Amino acid sequence: MFYPNSPQTSPQLTQIPYGQQYAMMQRQIQQPYHPFATTEPQARLYPYHYQGPIQQEQGGFITQQSTAASPQYVQMRVTPVDQSIMSGYPNQTANGSSSSSFNYNIHPQQQQQQQQQQQQLRHHAMPVGSVPLQDDRYRKQLIVNYLAPDVTSTDLHELFSRFGELDGARIIYDKQTNMSKGYGFVYFCHAEDAKEAVERMSGYEFHGKWLKVGYSTNPLNIVPSNSSPYVHAGSRGAAG
């Protein structure tokens, strides 16, 4: 039997160049792979992502010199942007860049009308829970959420009447099932009393439920100042 490094198959040491006398086997001759043993700084910083320098080929596509990437890492192929796409944008300079302001050559009167329309939209648009300043009635009506099913309009009136005089209180019921929808409205005579009720009743436990109280901004629920107070009856038909 002959071994790869046996004296019968191995040459004389004098015939082997210096430095390879003890590297006779194939696994010894093959050098191990060192990912950080390279002179390129990109490979030292990113050993798993770097795959060699990027070269520009004919046709405008950018390719990489090395083989496919590892399945664990996804390499994105980048193509140059066609400058003709950006030619339609206004205020574009000769080098292809555009300024931040756009001039669509709008007539001054049209621009003024658009600004007025935007101001009107901001004036009428009102986020949930906010209180408008032009109508004091919005500051007097509250919406009470997360009410228990057994709470009546009379219970709601008695709960909030300790903060001040009320114009009314009612629970909203479903017309088909005649069941409470879980929320109601309270109408105060003074805005200061309503503000105190919002601050003190939010998070209050009532009939096993934690109440959420806020201003009601729905104009359909506003009680006119010259109208008669609501009837605080315990029956659902009268309260709904």
Rank of each mutant, 00 (worst) to 15 (best):
I222T: 03
V131K: 11
T152Q: 11
R236K: 04
P219C: 00
D193L: 02
Y48Q: 15
M86Y: 10
G214C: 05
Y18E: 07
Q111V: 12
G19P: 10
E165R: 15
G237M: 11
I54D: 13
S130T: 05
S202A: 09
N145W: 00
P7D: 05
P11W: 05
H34S: 13
P229K: 11
R77Y: 01
Q31T: 08
P127Q: 07
T154R: 01
Q134H: 10
M76A: 14
P32Q: 11
R137W: 04
T79G: 07
S6F: 05
V151Y: 00
K209D: 01
L147R: 01
K195E: 11
K209G: 01
H49A: 11
P11Y: 04
L142N: 00
P17M: 13
P229V: 05
P132Y: 15
Y230N: 05
P71D: 14
A69S: 08
Q114P: 07
I62G: 14
L121I: 09
Q117C: 11
D150P: 11
H157C: 10
G164D: 00
Q117D: 04
H123F: 12
Y104K: 12
M76I: 04
D167G: 02
Q75H: 12
E57C: 08
Y50M: 08
I106E: 04
E165G: 14
R122C: 08
E205D: 09
V81A: 09
F160R: 01
V144P: 01
Q31E: 08
H34V: 07
R137E: 01
R137A: 04
I172C: 00
D167A: 03
A238C: 04
T9N: 10
V131I: 10
P35E: 10
I143V: 01
Q75W: 00
L13G: 12
R27C: 02
A169F: 02
P32S: 09
A69R: 15
Q120M: 11
Q72G: 09
S98L: 06
E196P: 14
P224I: 05
I29G: 09
S101D: 04
Y187G: 01
D155C: 14
N5C: 04
F188H: 01
V231N: 10
I172N: 00
Q92M: 14
S70Y: 04
A37Q: 13
H157Q: 09
Q92H: 10
T38D: 10
M24R: 15
A94D: 06
Y18L: 07
Q75R: 15
S180N: 04
P71Y: 04
P17R: 10
C189N: 09
Q109G: 09
R200S: 04
G164R: 00
P229I: 06
H107C: 14
T217I: 07
L45A: 14
P41A: 09
T63P: 10
Y138Q: 02
C189G: 07
Q114F: 08
V151N: 01
S216F: 01
L133Q: 06
Q75I: 00
Q56D: 15
C189V: 02
G182T: 02
E165N: 14
Y33Q: 15
T79V: 03
H232S: 08
N91D: 09
H207D: 01
F61Y: 09
Y22K: 15
T154Q: 09
N221D: 08
Q117E: 06
A233I: 05
R77V: 01
P41Q: 14
V131P: 11
R162H: 14
N221G: 04
D82W: 06
F61Q: 15
G184D: 01
Q111N: 13
L13E: 11
V223P: 05
Y50T: 14
Q116L: 13
I171T: 05
Q31S: 09
G184T: 00
G237T: 11
G184H: 01
I171P: 02
S100Q: 11
G208I: 02
Q176M: 07
S6M: 09
H157M: 14
N218Q: 01
